[in-house]
Design a binder for these strands. Structure first.
Length: 202
DNA sequence: AGCACGATTAACT
DNA sequence: GTTAATCGTGCTC
């Protein structure tokens, strides 16, 4: 299947988008071969009002992509060494995105292994900066269209995750963010059992 | 100055 | 086997 998710998929409420991105397949084309995996963890960041969102300070050069068309990749650098991958949501002009925090790798395992040298396979993609490292995602992919099958990075349909296998929690790593944003249950992840089922997918 | 983190330690069961 | 604490790193504002 190389039919990407339609742009309308992203043009909706960010929390719904984060939830429905679970089980979808993230595909990276690297030197003509595919690396892919199923999304198992994601967080919603929603607008200038959300004080955990990068857009809380208004539009800057860094976060400009979030203000643009939905279905595009917002890739940014942090902590002096880590790249983060987000999918832009909502209508054009509204700054919101879903941070992709973890995937279950399915294709291109040899490439992932070479991008994550010396790491056990369980730790290849189980964190937001780990998955970007595993898939060789960096700032060059900022603004990339995730709805275009010719992009080096896009999203495909995957596995349907049953509603009762989706868990939520507050978002990770928010530091000084004030309430109520600190405690908003906008992190969505797939239960461990369901990940094992995903592991059997091809 | 302040990070939407990860690797490495060091202390525990 | 686990959790808690620490700090490197360099880009954005």
């Amino acid at each position: 299947m190389t039919t990407p998710l339609p742009r309308t998929f992203f043009q909706k409420d960010t929390c719904s988008a984060a939830r429905s991105l679970l089980g979808k397949r993230l595909v990276r084309i690297l030197d003509g071969s595919r690396i892919s995996g199923l999304i198992v963890e994601a967080e919603a960041y929603n607008g200038e009002e959300d004080l955990a969102c990068h857009a809380r300070v208004g539009k800057t050069r860094r976060n400009a992509v979030m203000y643009g068309s939905p279905g595009h990749a917002y890739v940014y650098f942090t902590y002096g060494m880590h790249w983060m991958l987000n999918a832009v949501t909502r209508e054009e002009g509204f700054p919101a995105a879903v941070l992709l925090r973890a995937i279950h790798p399915l294709e291109g395992l040899d490439l992932i292994a070479s991008n994550r040298p010396g790491r056990p396979s369980a730790e290849w993609c189980n964190g937001p900066a780990k998955l970007t490292q595993a898939m060789a995602i960096n700032g060059e992919l900022n603004g990339c269209d995730l709805c275009n099958p010719h992009s080096p990075l896009f999203l495909e349909s995957g596995l349907t995750i049953p509603e009762n296998s989706i868990l939520t929690s507050p978002r990770i790593g928010l530091g000084n963010t004030p309430e109520p944003w600190l405690s908003k249950p906008w992190r969505y992840y797939v239960s461990k059992n369901e990940v094992l089922i995903a592991a059997k997918a091809r």
